[in-house]
Design a binder for these strands. Sequence first.
DNA 1: GTGTACACTTAGAAGCGATCAC
DNA 2: GTGATCGCTTCTAAGTGTACAC
Length: 677
Amino acid sequence: DSHKHKDKHKDREHSHKEHKRDKERENSKNGNRQQDKHFRFSPCNLSGLSYTRMCCFSSLSIKVEEDNGYHLPIKHEKPLKRERDEDEYEHKPKKLKVDNEKKVKKRKQEDKVKKDSTGGKKKAKNEPQEKWKWWEEEKYTDGSKWRFLEHKGPVFPPPYEPLPDRIRFYYDGKAMKLSPAAEEVATFYAKMLDHEYTTKDIFRKNFFKDWRKEMTPEEKSKITELKKCDFTEMHEYFKAQSEARKQMTKEEKQKIKEENERILQEYGYCVMDNHRERIGNFRIEPPGLFRGRGDHPKMGKLKRRIRPEDIIINCSKDSAHPQAPPGSRWKELRHDNKVTWLVSWTENIQGSIKYIMLNPSSRIKGEKDWQKYETARRLKKSVEHIRAQYREDWRSKEMRIRQRAVALYFIDKLALRAGNEKDEGETADTVGCCSLRVEHIRLHPQMDGQDYVVELDFPGKDSIRYYNKVSVEKRVFKNLQLFLENKQAKDDLFDRLNTSILNKHLQELMDGLTAKVFRTYNASITLQQQLKELTSPDDNIPEKILSYNRANRAVAVLCNHQRAPPKTFEKSMHNLQTKIDEKKKQLSAAKKELKAAKADAKMLRDEKSKKAVEMKKKAVQRISEQLMKLEVQATDREENKQIALGTSKLNYLDPRISVCKKYWCGNSFKVAYVPSK
DNA sequence: GTGTACACTTAGAAGCGATCAC
DNA sequence: GTGATCGCTTCTAAGTGTACAC
């Protein structure tokens, strides 16, 4: 019997997008593909000291073996071997300096001295761009995140600018002038007319409900049906505006660029502990319609405009406090150095808190990132023991222990997320490991020539579908059968488990261990093993890049990092195919010419015709190479259609693996910071 | 044990300037 | 010159995990 509430989840269908993805996945049995357009660089300013890195890749294919210890949700042609234990992830770390009170005190004093010498303000803006090796400095041990923090506060979006009178809204075929408040919300919808969102019932319903709240009583009584609303003039107006922006002269564009740069310099940086640091998101989110992912019950709701009165400012007592815009005041001015955020506010859709924090290149983010990979490396040392433990626990007398052990096996083997419980009706129905339900799993004692196959099919984070068939150990299979007994589709698979229980257990096994550490560890170790397998010391740079991309793709597949195929995908593939066809024709013609030249040479037996043969041979060779390149490009693009490589690069792969000398491929990476040599 | 608040990381979509191909 | 594509940034939603009250 379930300890958790049952029947709490309503039947939901896959979103339209997901259906599209499913269909495409089916159509692409040899693997998912993605055009490597989406690649997110980590901020990697050498003076910015990011613990993350910057790489230049093209997309390349990987192939996956059926049973390699890691069971990837997306299948590929070639085996991706991944051994569980690989010592090379064991780079010697640079010894972390241990903080002590004396050193922290010294740093504090130094900060004070520098501050005093600059009249209470840091000389940050025009400081020479000298590398700051924050990783060589001591860390705070008292839980504080900084000693001094000064910033200029957030940048607010511009106020609403009413539409020109010539741009009209029509209701039931008749032009109608809207009040400014109602008009503003209408423009949010009008701007999205081309988007799939506006075809969704929930989106339309939520928008209309919230829009009506902004209307005057007269408007409210008149506008009663969304389907009678005509926003097309507004839509065309915004499209024309966007077009006009594109058509601006170089000078106009330059002027805007300079203004943006000025704002960035003024508001985009803060001073934290004597260093000028880039802020990640210094702009307040503008009002608009909420774009929840998947079947989000709140999509289309009005995201209200944030006012200074909603804003909490966090900074040092002894800093120059940011000033609220004239005529307004902040909600609160706080001096909490136990947190890293500079500005916060509560949003109105979920009631959650939003923050303005530092850029990933900052000391504070870099240190956290580093710690994350250090924890993953510690896990490497304990992982065999932990695996032995959970295998033992599969036989436990207690159901809760068995469930915990099977869930952990999934998290380790399949790199699943923990799966916290979520508020029903407040968010899209998505699950992770601990929140899997009976309906998400199917057991096949035999399937495709394999024993004990578990078929997993569930919506994960961002409503991305996780689909995988994996052969498991007999004991796991038997346990799963037991967990499913006497349960309905909507019941929890692991009814005696949640993330809190699981993480408490993990904490006992290793200090700092939580479910997500397994994802980091397994992603990084997969990269390393793939690099080892796919590269050889004699490889040239393109070959190494090819291997790196394949290894990266293996990680993306393991972590189920997917994206929607680009809108222009089909068209661009079609264009590429046309090129291939033309090239084939060219090749065929060149071959004919070569044949003719050979015949001439045989007859004439002179130097000129011999030379002609050589020329034609070279032409055939050149065209063949061009054709091959195009074909590789097509395969590559097709295989990368749905795989997103950026997330793993940015969040899961220890940069020390990418810059390891053994796999180093020169100009492929720009490294901001390599902590160990 | 449960619920909630909070702080932070992870995530895909969208935007945009630069470059390429024609 | 123009449209397509690339390479990257920005935006913000959606997760994880901890602390704390009851």
